[in-house]
């Protein structure tokens, strides 16, 4: 297990390196120069081409890509994420706070997605073909296909404009003011959780259905266990594998959702930072954010793999 972990961690680092290199190169292959975009978006009338060149030099953008990448790697190695080209802020300081915010919302959404999705999936599987199954399946399809900004608009209309029970924008960390944080988080979490709920419901339904047909479930029934015990003890754990696998990809979904949700509800997280920096070609910010997101995804996949062993004792690591 120990050597397996070390090997996987090394793999994870390799993946992060490869992703960071690809992002690094791809960002620079996209049309558009950040310095030019800075000039045109900010109406910097006093910037002469000479000053633009000087700025490009100062930011190290005039060097060959390989050199830029190595220099950036070195910086990252020292924990220095660099400075935003468009706005001159220290990326590390900025990300530090934003990661927490995105994590809070993302984690809550993930947890809700998992719990609600698994519960609904089990109910649908057990009551297959019944009314509740049909209702939930339709809702799950809506949840999967409806764009999250649209759901957000509906929620805002209902809870903010009509009922006046939830605040429209802003975010407070729960340990600062729990009540306020809760109110501000409900809509963002709901919108983010919708996709995960829908996906998890569908996955749970189908994998529970599959397990329900397994011989050992029949054995469990033959033992005289009641439905609850059969499902919870014998079905769920075995149906969990594909659901756990799904959680790895769920992260992508949540990160993707955070981009929309953070923009709509004015939440200072990583998602809004990523979109804005992508659009303005703020290379160092995009690089820093993608490296962190890649790390989160890679590590959570590792976690998922380790979880497998707990779920299915047949799996061994070597």
């Amino acid at each position: 297990m120990g050597s397996y972990l070390i090997r996987r961690l090394l793999q994870a680092i390799l993946v992060i390196l490869v992703v960071s290199f690809l992002v690094f190169v791809l960002m620079r292959m996209l049309p558009g120069d950040p310095i030019e975009m800075l000039i045109s978006s900010s109406m910097l009338t006093d910037y002469t081409p000479e000053m633009m060149d000087a700025l490009r030099h100062e930011k190290g953008l005039d060097q060959p890509i390989g050199v830029q990448y190595l220099r950036w790697l070195g910086q990252m190695g020292r924990g220095d994420f660099g400075t935003s080209i468009m706005q001159n802020y220290n990326i590390r300081n900025e990300i530090k706070d934003r990661v927490v915010v995105t994590m809070m919302i993302g984690f809550a959404a993930w947890l809700i997605g998992l719990i609600v999705g698994v519960l609904l999936g089990i109910i649908c599987a057990i009551r297959r073909g019944k009314l509740i199954d049909n209702i939930v399946s339709v809702l799950a399809n809506i949840g999967l296909t409806a764009p999250s900004f649209w759901i957000a608009i509906l929620l805002v209309y209902l809870f903010v404009m009509k009922l006046h029970v939830l605040p429209l924008y802003g975010y407070t960390l729960p340990w600062v003011d729990f009540g306020k944080s809760l109110k501000q988080s409900i809509m963002p979490i709901l919108v983010t959780a919708l996709g995960p709920i829908a996906t998890t419901t569908r996955q749970t339904r189908s994998s529970v259905l599959e397990v329900l047909n397994e011989d050992y479930v029949r054995t469990a029934w033959s033992k005289g266990l009641n439905e609850k015990k059969v499902v919870m003890k014998h079905v769920l754990k075995n149906a969990l594998m594909p659901i756990v696998t799904l959680q790895g990809t769920m992260l992508r979904m949540i990160i993707g959702g955070s981009v929309v949700v953070e923009t709509i509800f004015v939440i200072p997280g990583m998602g809004s930072m990523l979109t804005k920096s992508m659009l303005s070609h703020d290379y160092p910010v995009v690089q820093a954010v993608t490296v962190i997101m890649t790390a989160v995804v890679v590590l959570s996949n590792l976690l998922v793999d380790i979880l497998y062993a707990w779920i299915d004792p047949r799996i061994q690591y070597s």
């Binding site: 049309p31 659009l279 303005s280």
Partner: peptide, 12 residues
């Protein structure tokens, strides 16, 4: 209809 990066490429 280029994106802002593509547009600034044309512009400059």
């Amino acid at each position: 209809f280029p994106d802002s990066g593509g547009y600034s490429n044309y512009r400059f």
